[in-house]
Design a protein around this nucleic acid. Structure first.
Lengths: 146, 146
DNA sequence: GTTTAGATCAAGAATTATTCTAAAAAAGGA
DNA sequence: TCCTTTTTTAGAATAATTCTTGATCTAAAC
């Protein structure tokens, strides 16, 4: 066995995918950056600090594997670069045009993600993406600018 | 005045932008394609039938002008090519994974687009995009496959 | 411990939707 | 008509992402 690679585990928590060093680093970075909703490039920069040999293509691969495994979520706002977030609860995303931050919006008690929409009969929603844009008015960056 | 260009009008209905031949063609194509939610390339193909000299860049320009003027809406689902739609009512979009069609979902009576979400105080939503994915089960294409 | 088959990684090329650039054409007003 | 601004056009440029290929790693079989 090579000196620079220890065994990895197939992890239940991550949808059964093999948890390689690279995937772990990518996941850790995402968890640490927390609410920042980083893009693949931003994840790459942070991942490179922990593992200088990692490549951008691998970061893309890992983000896709983790997304498919259900361990993280991909966040798309307009056609900007995809962002990623480790929050698995149903939630919407709010992009503040003033501070350029993305943050999570939770559901009200008892509400579902598609509350309010007139879905036709027989229509089965498997995934829903809600992206809002505006000004948050309360985040630190916004307060600075006011 | 050139023989192949008649006067255009600045049209109130289209947010005050100058309604050039090209913009009119693009708008007409979009209205005719109706619920198809075409991409810029698809609009280009249809527009070229009406005006063979139109270029793809112009189609992009026109779609952006019309969007900014509030005459049409840009629809983004994941990071796929943007689609465009002439429906100005608040509505969500449903992408059927079986028939690969995008269609509009209206609001229930009295509901607002952000119904159900716990927006923090002071948060001002200027725009909201709701994209659902799943199987519609009722559209012609879906019935064919079942 | 070795071997083997399949999964993953790395680097760079390729792709694709979109935007940018610069010059020509058109529009509207003087 | 002349002038200024806007729009169009064609093609180059851009940026995020995906693809390709060979190398490396892993897990399981031998």
């Amino acid at each position: 066995m090579g000196a620079n690679q220890t065994e990895t585990a197939t992890c239940e928590e991550f949808g059964g995918i093999r948890m390689t060093k690279q995937r772990q680093v990518v996941y850790d970075v995402l968890s640490e950056l927390g609410i920042n909703h980083p893009t693949a490039s931003e994840v790459f920069v942070s991942a490179k600090e922990k593992m200088p040999s990692i490549s951008l293509a691998t970061v893309y691969n890992c983000l896709e594997s983790l997304t498919q495994a259900g361990a993280i979520k991909q966040v798309n706002i307009d056609r900007e670069a995809s962002r990623y977030c480790p929050n698995l609860q149903p939630h919407a995303h709010f992009y503040c045009e003033q501070c350029e931050t993305v943050f999570d919006i939770g559901l009200q008690n008892g509400a579902e993600a598609c509350t309010g929409w007139a879905l036709p009969d027989g229509c089965e929603v498997r995934e829903i993406n809600v992206a809002m844009k505006g000004v948050c008015g309360t985040c630190p960056q916004c307060e600075k600018k006011n």
